[in-house]
């Protein structure tokens, strides 16, 4: 019982980060119809900037994190303006491949910046934990503060994002753009600006994901960037254009992966080591068999 509880808490903590990254993919996808393979690069740049500010320069963590998110959002906006805007109206494959090219550039940049060093980000949670259920000698069920912190940060950020998207003028304009660009244009919405804004948001959220990934009491290195791709099954599971789906998908994937890493070695060892890495994909495939557009994805309207 105690193991179940700890596992679920850890799963939710990781799931929150998956959800955040999946949302960052969704926002960019809804605006420009691109699966942005450059997200890993943006993610690790977020970690790097936070680390430089918080550890090397002694800036308080939260200030450093906000600055890092803004810096990466600006980079992301720049990428959209330079490399994605010219691709509007071009085949989806080509645009996705452009983001792959950007990914390569950003990744090498990150490797150069890290320069073979492992980095920390001086987050406030470190390895502190709360004991929820006291056992006989040791703590039976404990909650790491960084898991709680991740869940809290993601909940606040995504909550604000949801309100902003559904209430504010700009948020509504963004949603209108993602529904129908031409109609939005006809309503006087500056579609180009909406593209920039979406990419800035997506990049900023990816950077935040990178910061939260690094908040595990340990160190990060440049190739941790590839963590962003782990969110892909979460994205598809929820439905590629649904924010709600991304959140649900992220949490589901976090739980599935935590549960399978705890119980699969005991109950199904024949599935091999590290099965938790593929369990999310298995769940995703099963869901897609029943619902081809994920849990909350919009069905493509098919016309002749």
């Amino acid at each position: 019982m105690a193991t179940v509880a700890s596992t679920l808490l850890a799963g939710l903590g990781d799931g929150a980060v998956y959800a955040l990254i999946a949302v960052s993919f969704v926002i960019i996808f809804r605006a420009t119809g691109v699966l942005n393979f450059a997200q890993p690069g943006l993610l690790i740049l977020g970690t790097y900037v936070t680390s430089v500010l918080a550890v090397d320069r002694g800036v308080p963590f939260w200030v450093a994190a906000v600055i890092a998110v803004l810096v990466v959002a600006a980079i992301s906006m720049g990428i959209e303006r330079v490399a994605i805007r010219p691709m509007i109206g071009r085949p989806v494959f080509s645009t996705a491949l452009v983001t792959v090219g950007i990914f390569i550039v950003l990744l090498i940049l990150a490797f150069r910046l890290f320069a073979a060093r492992a980095r920390t980000i001086a987050d406030p949670w470190q390895l502190e934990q709360w004991c929820l259920v006291q056992g006989e000698t040791l703590c039976a069920v404990s909650l790491y503060q960084h898991h709680a912190g991740k869940i809290a940060v993601v909940a606040v950020v995504l909550g604000l994002l949801g309100v902003w998207l559904s209430r504010s003028r700009v948020g509504l304009a963004m949603r209108a753009t993602s529904l129908d660009q031409e109609a939005a244009l006809a309503q006087g919405i500056n579609v180009g600006r909406m593209f920039s804004l979406s990419w800035a948001l997506g990049g900023g959220l990816a950077a935040l994901g990178g910061i939260l990934l690094a908040a595990n009491g340990s160190v990060v290195q440049a190739n941790d960037a590839l963590f962003a791709l782990v969110a892909l099954p979460a994205l598809i599971l929820g439905g590629i254009d649904s924010l709600r789906g991304a959140v649900v998908g992220g949490l589901v994937i976090g739980l599935v992966s935590a549960l399978s890493s705890t119980y699969q070695p005991i109950h199904a060892p024949w599935l091999g080591p590290n099965f938790e890495n593929v369990a999310p994909y298995l769940v995703m495939i099963l869901v897609l068999l029943i619902r081809p557009y994920g849990l909350f994805g919009t069905k493509e309207v098919q016309r002749l």
Partner: peptide, 18 residues
Amino acid sequence: RGLYLAVLTLGLLMLGEQ
């Protein structure tokens, strides 16, 4: 269809690797 298929086949790749 579309990107769903792309990531579904990516899943195939991951399962295959395992």
